[in-house]
Computed example of a mutant assay.
Amino acid sequence: MPDRPSATDGEERLVGADRVLSVLVELAGLSHGASLDEMVQRTRSPKATVHRALASLRRAGLAKQDARGHYILGDEFLRLAFAHHEARPEHIRVRPILDRLSERFSETIHFAVLDGYDVVYREKVDPTSGAVRLSSTIGGRNPAHSTGVGKALLATRLHSLADVEAWIGDRTLEQRTPRTATSAPELHRRLAETRERGFAVDDQENEAGINCVAVPLYLASPSEPSGAVSVSAVAYRTPLADLIGAIDQIHDIIREGTS
Rank of each mutant, 00 (worst) to 15 (best):
S221P: 08
V120K: 03
H110S: 09
G61L: 00
E165K: 12
P143Q: 01
T156G: 04
P222L: 14
F105L: 00
E103W: 07
R19D: 12
G169R: 08
A166K: 11
T238A: 05
V201H: 00
D248E: 15
S31M: 04
S146T: 13
I210D: 14
R52Q: 06
V234H: 14
S221V: 04
V201D: 05
F77W: 13
H145N: 04
H32T: 02
L30H: 01
K151S: 02
S129I: 05
L80A: 13
P46F: 00
V23C: 02
T108A: 11
S106A: 14
A81P: 09
T43V: 04
R157S: 13
V213N: 07
S45F: 00
R157V: 07
S135D: 15
A184W: 05
L191P: 06
E103K: 11
Y218E: 07
Y121T: 01
L30Y: 00
L240H: 02
G10I: 10
E123T: 05
I253S: 14
R104Y: 12
H32K: 05
A233L: 08
L101N: 10
A228G: 05
S129G: 09
M1A: 14
D99C: 09
T194I: 09
L114M: 02
S45A: 07
Q204H: 03
A235G: 13
A144S: 10
I72E: 15
R19N: 13
S135Y: 12
T172F: 10
G33C: 03
R93K: 09
Q41P: 04
F111N: 07
L73H: 01
D203H: 09
T180M: 04
G209V: 10
G209M: 06
E207C: 01
T182H: 05
H91Q: 13
R157T: 06
G257N: 12
R195Y: 06
V231P: 05
R157W: 02
S223I: 03
D75I: 01
L24E: 09
R93L: 13
D203L: 14
L14P: 03
Q175W: 01
